[in-house]
Amino acid sequence: MPYAKTVLTDADVQRVVDRIAHQILEKTQGAQDVVLMGIVSRGVPLARRLAERISAFEGLSLPVGALDITLYRDDLRQQAVRKVGHTEEPPGGVDGRRVILVDDVLFSGRTIRAALDALSDLGRPGVVQLAVLVDRGHRQLPIRADYVGKNIPTALTEKVRVKLAEIDGTDEVQLEAA
């Protein structure tokens, strides 16, 4: 039976982003040397929001970049040609910095694998961490997140749909099944 249930409301999403921002500040000694790299597409507005929250809490302005991983995917041949997104290096680059990759959903881990490759072609960060809004499990690679907004247990047949106001007009996370 098809269904779509809301697991995070817009208020929940804002709370979760706030929490991740606080966790980043705690774990990185006040976000020293931190660079936020959003993974295209929904990781990018999330990274900007984290930077905005951190700025609001601590008055710090963190560099934000965008990382498109299309050209690094390991499944290009399994689908029609994918659109290539825009990669934007953060001001000051990534060399020696503490780069936090930001994405909406952590699932198989393959996107993050590709993102690590893409990032290492941009430069040589000192530390790489990962922040995700949702971790839905089912990892296929030895990858874990450093900051998780919400763990959502899912079945493989289910879909996690993240909506963000910047792209979708509203903030919401839904769990769907066909």
């Binding site: 050209l71 290009l76 041949r77 399994q78 689908q79 029609a80 040609v81 994918r82 290539v84």
Partner: peptide
């Protein structure tokens, strides 16, 4: 080349 060869 990407558009010709980058997919299935």
């Amino acid at each position: 080349l990407y558009l010709l060869l980058g997919g299935k």
